[in-house]
Amino acid sequence: MTDRTRIELDRLPTAGSSYRRALLGALPLGGRRGGDTLPAVEFAVAGVTVDRTHLAEYDRVCGFRLTDEVPGTYPHVLGFPLALRLMTGAGFPLPLIGLVHVANRITVHRRIDAGETLDLVAYADGLRPHERGRQVDVVLLASVAGVPVWHGVSTYLRREPTPDGRAGRDHRDRPTPPPASAHWRVTPQTGTEYARVSGDHNPIHTSRLGARLFGFPRPIAHGMWSKARCLAALAGRLPAAYTVAVEFKAPVPLPATVGFHSTPDGAFALHDPRTGRPHLTGTLT
Rank of each mutant, 00 (worst) to 15 (best):
L120Y: 10
V121M: 05
V121R: 13
A122P: 07
D125Y: 08
L127F: 07
L127D: 00
R128W: 05
R128I: 13
P129Y: 05
P129R: 06
H130V: 04
H130N: 11
E131G: 10
E131C: 04
R132M: 15
R132N: 02
G133N: 03
R134D: 02
R134F: 02
Q135P: 03
V136S: 02
V136A: 04
V136W: 01
D137E: 15
V138C: 06
V139I: 15
L140T: 07
L140A: 04
L141R: 12
L141C: 06
A142C: 01
A142N: 01
S143F: 00
S143P: 02
V144N: 06
V144E: 07
A145Y: 03
G146K: 00
V147M: 07
P148S: 11
P148G: 07
P148Y: 15
V149G: 02
V149R: 00
W150C: 06
G152M: 11
G152P: 08
G152L: 12
G152S: 13
G152F: 10
G152V: 12
V153W: 00
S154H: 04
T155Q: 14
T155G: 05
Y156Q: 08
L157M: 10
R158Q: 15
R159H: 06
E160N: 06
P161G: 09
T162F: 08
T162N: 11
T162V: 09
G165V: 02
G165K: 02
G165C: 04
R166D: 12
R166P: 01
A167T: 15
A167C: 12
G168L: 14
G168K: 10
G168T: 13
G168D: 10
G168C: 09
R169T: 08
R169D: 06
H171Y: 03
R172W: 03
R172T: 13
R172L: 14
R172P: 03
D173F: 11
R174F: 15
T176L: 13
P177F: 10
P178I: 15
P178M: 14
P179L: 10
P179F: 04
S181N: 09
A182I: 12
A182S: 11
A182C: 05
H183F: 13
H183R: 13
H183G: 04
H183E: 15
H183W: 10
W184P: 00
